[in-house]
Amino acid sequence: MPPIHVVLEEFVAKALLAAIVVLVFLAAAARTFGHPLIWSVDLAQLLFVWLCMLGANKALRRKSHIGVDFFVLRLPTAMRRIVEIVLGLLTLGFLGALAYLGVRLTLLNAERIYGDSGISYAWVTGAVPVGCVLLALTLIGHLVRCLRGGALVFLREDAPRPVVE
């Protein structure tokens, strides 16, 4: 059984995806019958950015993000580990900067209205810093495991990968 926050994230992400499908389908159906739902697509679009962030975090947890390992695979294991740790720290700095700037931007323009819905656009902008914090936490977990001599940071050891000869 995976930890509770992973189960929760998984549940929320799946619910978001299903909700987006239903909202857009309903919007099209309602319009066809002459009763356009103005909030439906807006809400779907708003939920979408959160789905992207949760999905990206799940993919990072499972080390599924696509990378070019063609050259790294040719390095000796110890070297590869060092490269990955450096890249991991750089990415951590990047995510941290985005999270900090994201909070500032969200607060700066909180009056901005989302589309024509009346709710604050902060619900969209805010997804970026929240997503970056989640990604950073996941990345810290990978980095710690790597420094302890375990798995790599971004590459999945067990992933199918072309053979190098």
Partner: peptide, 26 residues
């Protein structure tokens, strides 16, 4: 300002045609 980088990430998600990506993947 660097914070506009965050804006560009957020705004990219707000395109209706792009919703086709999750739909067809699912």
């Amino acid at each position: 300002p660097a914070s506009i980088g965050v804006q560009q990430i957020a705004t990219t998600s707000q395109s209706f045609p792009l919703l086709a990506v999750p739909f067809f993947v699912l």
